[in-house]
Design a binder for these strands. Structure first.
Lengths: 190, 190
DNA sequence: CTTGTCTATGCAACGAGTTGCATAGAAGGA
DNA sequence: TCCTTCTATGCAACTCGTTGCATAGACAAG
């Protein structure tokens, strides 16, 4: 149930509403976690009922009112407990890799467009992360000296950048392989 | 429902039982997909009932009998259809990154052992993949010339290798950052 | 004045995935 | 003989996550 912990960390960094959390999960946090707003609202409701979060109704002007959540004592304790427990190293679920192996039983050349599309998405993400890095960490607007929280956010972002670069290079390798196979007179069927 | 497609690809590469599939998912396929045997048996049962797979009872000596599954016509058609439909670029769910950002509200130094443990797991996986690459693709025992299926399996494996190398380098970066923060007189609390 | 977009919250149904448990044949060691 | 390990299959309960749908205030464009 790591979504709860991701929410706790995000709310400790800055309290916010379910809507704001959903936007954060799309953006900066997006490079290591994703969640839909439906799921976030459900979990927020549960955590508030359990006493791990507290809500505050905030009236706004020019837009609907919101519920601002922040972390309560039990929430902080739950996070600390989780932080001290070992977790399983993550396992990948890479649908595109299934497709690539599956292409052996279909037409490898038909996969080129799909792989190119994915590569473009990863290039866009990389550009987005790099812009965020300059804005928040390495540019002239960045706070100096950074505190521990910023150092840790930065190293996580560097992980996202490294992941995107690696993925783009690998997809180039995949495209080379697909093009090489397209030059062969091998029909579908293994 | 990509597990079905991963199973179809694996069974096209070579027919096998639920037990054998579970072992494959732990090993070679493991670098892009994971599944428990319970889940595999459930999906196999459903796919067989739907006519996408066919079963054959195989008597064995020195061990219990098994059910060998292979892909039927409708299964192959379902896979082909999926291969031609675009899929969403995958999104990460990296629990360790949540922990790293959460460490700002706890003791960053306490995370060192956990990160080192993860790094060791990734080193082991890398060694395992590299050994498999020599055994199946680049060593003297490897088939030459490789067919399309082998080329595609190889490029997926190269993706796994690139992923592990990237992750190990990033975890080194994380450890450097944690050590740097440990040298500072910053208490928990942001 | 209607339509569309952005902010904001949420329910209901379903499907995917995890965890715990159960069974059973065959082999080998204490 | 009992215990453990490996092979082999599966059910039941539960939690997690996705998809579809619904509501509503504020504002801007047509």
């Amino acid at each position: 149930m790591a979504l709860e912990h991701a929410i706790l960390v995000s709310l400790l960094e800055k309290p916010g509403s379910g809507y704001e959390l959903a936007r954060r999960f799309e953006r900066s946090i997006g490079h290591f976690w994703t969640a839909s707003h439906q799921q976030i609202y459900r979990v927020l409701g549960r955590m508030e009922a359990d006493g791990r979060l507290v809500v505050r109704e905030v009236e706004q002007q020019g837009r609907p009112d919101k519920k601002e959540y922040s972390v309560a004592g039990p929430g902080r304790a739950a996070l600390a407990e989780w932080l001290h427990k070992p977790i399983e190293p993550e396992s990948l679920r890479h649908d595109l890799a299934v497709k690539i192996r599956g292409a052996a039983f279909d037409d490898p050349a038909a996969l080129v467009r799909e792989v190119e599309r994915h590569r473009q998405v990863h290039r866009d993400r990389l550009a987005h992360y790099l812009a965020g890095e300059v804005r928040d960490f390495t540019g002239p607007q960045a706070p100096a000296p950074p505190d521990a929280g910023q150092e840790l956010q930065h190293v996580v972002l560097r992980g996202g950048i490294a992941y995107e670069r690696m993925t783009i290079a690998w997809l180039d390798d995949v495209l080379d392989t697909l093009h090489r196979l397209a030059g062969r007179p091998t029909g579908p069927g293994a």
